[in-house]
Design a protein around this nucleic acid. Structure first.
Lengths: 347, 347
DNA sequence: CTGAAAGCGCTAACAG
DNA sequence: CTGTTAGCGCTTTCAG
């Protein structure tokens, strides 16, 4: 890295002068135009870029606020980051504690590449989202140097903010059972995720205990996207012998499936009932509107930040785990069954 | 801020010792357990938090990469950030130049609150998105100290990455004209935005030059969200006298409108044709699928980063402006008119 | 008009 | 086992 010293040397001025010129205070300090030009020329030719750590350290007058990193994966789930950010942002406004947000993208299963988790040279704390099973394994064993909050995961070692995914899966299976379904299916995003895994197990166990069939043919793995859902639905229809109810482990996939069913002349909910998971904004406006499991992302995000700040300020001893309650949101894609039972638990 | 010095003084050890303990190197350095406990105790009680600027400056061995801030508004458009990030991330992978991403949320029209634009103590460059007209005014006049790239805006002073919004509006009006529409309308998000403004003007001018009516009754301002679009559609239907084609200046709004029309028994595209703007992921899967103007967000985002890095490295002289081409994506909500004309310009 | 030097908070090498 | 100290890159005060 070129430093201001080298600039000064090459331009044959002192570092002080170079600093003034580079910060646009040349005129104010009445540095001769020739000198200024010389300094700027040298800086440009060397590709000088100020070291903001140094600058910040020096000018530290402006209160130093904690730096909070959100580690988010680069995969399709990237589109979910906005809801998370929204949660943080809303909170951010009604919040006196200041902090700085750093979004650190990482490649799924390669969180070990983020060296600053060890060195602690970039942030005061990290909120980790979408950790794969391999990432979790790494985290459990590594010598991490900054406080960590895991979003939507369980852990003995770290603080977490999560929901009971197993219960959620079960809830949906129970619901299908109560609606009298005999053949039900599930569409699963092909990502490595503890949350998805638990949801799946819960659903299968729930079906089992209600004596409902979940034929292997009716369990589809696909990409975590609208397109993935679209393909899943197509596959199911083409296989023939549709289940009468389908649980999508992500709303986006359900949205894609609605389009596919529509195209292929399969009516929702008459021919097949559909349940999503997450309760994303658009699901209220799909046709038909999508029944789904409400995931309180915004609240969870806010909680992650609060917890993180507490951790950073040593106000709390790690690990703390917060489990959020979820609820089923009933819309048109899964019929109106409130009169039949009270399965909608939680809030 | 509590510094390591104070900790050391209170714990009656030297800063060196305190540093070792606080970094978990106590055992390695064979610091007595009692001392370690004492140091940690003091640090906790003082709410000690390491100054990462200092830490980073010191341990600067790990190559210093430029810090690139993305300033994004806190309003509803927050949900668009994911697509932008995706663009950056995809690029990020196939890119040798390293950088660090900092997402800095700001409140629309209050960009002047971001002091680091002036002090330059947090990032080496800023990509500013969603600048309101007031924000732009501020930027044009302020003494900004870091390189800036404006996303989706025009400017004489700064580098920009944008599209020709005026032309886009016009393109859609022409298209409606070619399809033989006589009464057309427009739904506008109520945000202060140069881009939205230009799109609107283009559309109106286009309609005028084709002698088509855009009755004031058919221009609706609503929130930039699915809900806003839903309300807009409802308003229009309730007013009676629907236009035969509607341009939504944002896809999300169009998605909401589709739901409203469906509920109220208005068929799309038979009773009314609909055109969105942006080409978001879900639009391919709406029912009917949404015709829309493709906004190359991902490419633009990548370009913003490239341009920014060039600017930071002085490889390029500001201001540089890049205009991206757009194209109309034809789907079911606006009928299949390719046989009738060739209005789909650009790529 | 320009140079010298202090010092921001921290780490790590060196000296006990 | 612990203390002392140099120095990371930068800004800014003070002296010329």
């Amino acid at each position: 890295m070129t430093s201001i010293k080298e600039i000064a040397k090459l331009a044959e001025v002192s570092v002080g002068t170079a600093s003034f010129v580079l910060n646009g205070k040349g005129d104010q300090m009445r540095i001769s135009e020739a000198t200024q030009r010389r300094v700027i020329e040298v800086a440009k030719s060397l590709g000088y870029r100020p070291n903001i750590s140094a600058r910040r350290l020096r000018s530290g007058g402006e209160k130093v606020v904690p730096v909070l990193a959100v580690l988010w994966t680069l995969d399709t789930r990237a589109s979910l980051v906005s809801r998370f950010l929204n949660g943080i942002q809303d909170h951010f406004i009604n919040q006196t504690r200041e902090f700085e947000l750093l979004i650190q993208p990482y490649e799924s299963s390669k969180i070990d590449k983020i060296k600053s988790l060890i060195t602690g040279t970039r942030f005061n704390g990290a909120i980790i989202a979408n950790a794969s099973e391999r990432d979790q394994h790494y985290l459990e064993n590594a010598e991490i140097n900054v406080p960590i909050v895991l979003y939507h995961r369980n852990s003995k070692k770290y603080s977490t903010v999560s929901i009971d995914n197993y219960k959620n899966g079960m809830m949906v299976a129970d619901l299908f059972a109560n609606r009298g379904h005999q053949q039900i299916g599930m569409v699963i995003p092909n990502v490595s995720s503890q949350a998805v895994h638990l949801r799946k197990e819960g659903f299968l166990d729930g079906a089992r205990s209600s004596n409902i069939q979940v034929s292997p043919k009716h369990i589809i793995f696909e990409n975590y996207s609208e397109e993935g859902g679209y393909q899943a639905a197509k596959k199911l229809v083409e296989n023939g012998n549709l289940p009468s109810a389908l649980f999508f482990l992500g709303d986006q996939m359900a949205i894609g499936a609605l389009a596919a069913f529509h195209e292929m002349g399969v009516s929702v909910p008459q021919d097949i009932e559909i349940m999503g998971h997450d309760n994303y904004g658009q699901t209220r406006f799909s046709i038909p509107s999508l029944s789904t499991v409400h995931l309180p992302v915004e609240d969870m995000a806010a909680r992650c930040v609060d917890l993180m700040l507490d951790l950073i300020e040593h106000k709390v001893k790690a690990p703390v785990s917060t489990i959020y309650d979820t609820s089923i949101v009933i819309r048109k894609s899964c019929g109106d069954f409130l009169d039949k039972n009270e399965s909608s638990k939680g809030d």
